[in-house]
Design a protein around this nucleic acid. Structure first.
Lengths: 203, 203, 203, 203
DNA sequence: AATGAATGAGGTTTCATTCAT
DNA sequence: TATGAATGAAACCTCATTCAT
């Protein structure tokens, strides 16, 4: 009986997504968003409290979904960083939410999600990375080093998510990149252990 | 005897740099920039032609210096991607121009430097990377793969430039990261050559 | 029930007309126009897209009406320049749109109607005048001469349109001026034919 | 010893003339005028009191010269409207001061010469025209009629002054237009005298 | 006399949000 | 709930004129 409401809401969500992606939150014009959605500016405020509310409504389903995915993955492999399968699963998920990802990472200035990237990296990924590196090296690893490698890894994901690839291509790239990363990682661990033994064996 | 002139100009350059870094070119308010510099908006236009002119004046010295550095580095090692020494030199330079780098890469939308990042990656780095990979592998390497690794490498640089490190720490990080990258690179080359021989040997 | 809408619009149209007439389009201040209409500058843009839009809205009804009138007159007397009746009809029309005429002819710089006078004279009137003179003289008449007389004729119209006359007075003035023009025209034709025959008779 | 002064002044006069002609007094930018004259805005105010002062300085020599010419012509033919020779002399003068004429007639809004056209027509020409018509008709002639014919005459002059003609062409055009005007004038006088006698002879 | 930076008001336009209907 | 005009501040920029040097 009230499907119209949802139609309007949906139209606003779509139009907003498009404008936010195109111009970022701050520079996107609410008027344009409304006009493109065939909605009056007044009506907008029946559906959303303010501009930011629209942004959040666009983005929040993906945020929750992402949180779930991330938590379940975290549970599954508390001891490692995730298999190629896990990587693929995450990236496929992100690829299916490509636009929301961009909104959160690049178009959120002015909203409460402005710090999303930081949260994702520092609070979600970094602690697990640091722990994993420490465990693998058998000693605390220099945090900046961990962070750099984490950033590189995330950058790889970014490429895979936004790049215009087929699923097949993504799978191939992940496979080859895991060769690269694994080799780099092992070399680094080797070096770190060597440093350790050198500094530890004075005799 | 007339240092006031430059004091105002300098104040505007500083205030502008701060605001542009904080909000990006477009969203930075000229009024705020002027107020922070204790300058009327009218007076601004005695020193700069328009808003963009202020941005350019902040950024251009670094751009020229960077171009020189990059060109000389390109000449020096046409055949490789640059030694650790070269990397260190570039990163040290960028670290000394940290803020201007961020302005150019992240805060330039709305100015003629909007495409700077793209130019840097696609026109400066990518061609050399692709050529180097092709040469090393002895065959054309999948461009997306090259691009991903390039992006990762640039991301490493970004970390080193913006991170709050001492020169000593940067040197150490570059050294260890070169172990990582080199090992990853060799593993990848090995794989590629193997793929090659496998697909070439029908028996 | 919602007459306010139109009241504001009307107030803006009036205030705009007055300011445009007084200062021309470019020099008229939107702020003043709005203030005189008791409208905020922001509100202005609910009713008009931009400053020029206000000008056009003031002027366009008259433009269309004028075009129609002119076209129908042109059809009616393809072979002459129009009777006293036609002149009277045109001038009466223009007198009823006096202000819009002035806006179009003298106050339109900066709008898309900037070239209106030129269009009216050169494209509407001049070709018909030249053709009529050529036909009457039986040979091509010096264009500058035609143009001068055309301008004088138009100047007569201008006087009749802007002058503070009753309809009766206008009728009388047209009648007497047609005596003047007709006599002048005949004298000129006579002269031209004489020149012709003199230059044509070698004896 | 002080020729520089005059050089600057001259440069400003030239530059000002050009800008005033191009944009009108109000819209011409003093900055641009100064820049084109290679003069600082400060220096400007050593030579002229304000913007309007520059305009007046450009225009006033011509105004005085014109006044003289007009007065002497007025003395010479108190009883007629001037011979073809007189017309030619006036128009030649105006053609030699073409730009100043345009400044006075079309570009003076915002200066004390804003009413120049009105003054010229109403105070200089009209009284003599009216007197001449009254005298010729032997009775008061309807002022609007006189004014219209005056305006037409002045319009003719305008054409001759601004039109791109050689002296020879101007002479020819004046000659032929005087045929036109004279014939028109005579026809009108005839009519007026007829009207007179008709209304005077009740029998 | 000359400089040219500074003033301060003004220009047009856009904005997110409110509110009477 | 929906409308869309109204708000009022803010955006960048230009102006004629002043004034300390």
């Amino acid at each position: 009986m009230l499907p119209e409401n949802d139609e309007i809401r949906t139209a606003l969500l779509q139009s907003g997504k498009q404008q936010f992606l195109a111009h970022g939150f701050d520079r996107a014009s609410l008027r344009v968003i409304c006009r493109n959605a065939n909605v009056t500016t007044g009506a907008f405020y029946s559906h959303f409290e303010k501009k930011e509310d629209l942004f959040c409504s666009i983005v929040e389903p993906s945020v929750s979904a992402f949180r779930e995915l991330f938590n379940s993955a975290a549970e599954r492999n508390a001891a490692s960083l995730g298999s190629v399968e896990d990587e693929l699963r995450s990236i496929t998920f992100a690829r299916n939410h490509r636009e929301e990802c961009r909104l959160l990472l690049d178009c959120a200035e002015g909203t409460k999600y402005a710090g999303f990237r930081r949260w994702l990296v520092e609070d979600c990924f970094y602690p697990r990375y640091q722990a994993f590196f420490d465990r693998s090296a058998g000693k605390p690893v220099d945090p900046p080093l961990v962070r750099i490698i984490l950033h590189m890894k995330l950058d790889e994901y970014t490429d895979l998510i936004y790049g215009d690839y087929t699923d097949e291509e993504v799978r191939g790239l992940i496979a080859r990149m895991s060769i690269f990363s694994e080799a780099g990682f092992q070399a680094l661990m080797h070096l770190l252990r060597e440093e350790e033994s050198r500094s530890a064996a004075p005799v």
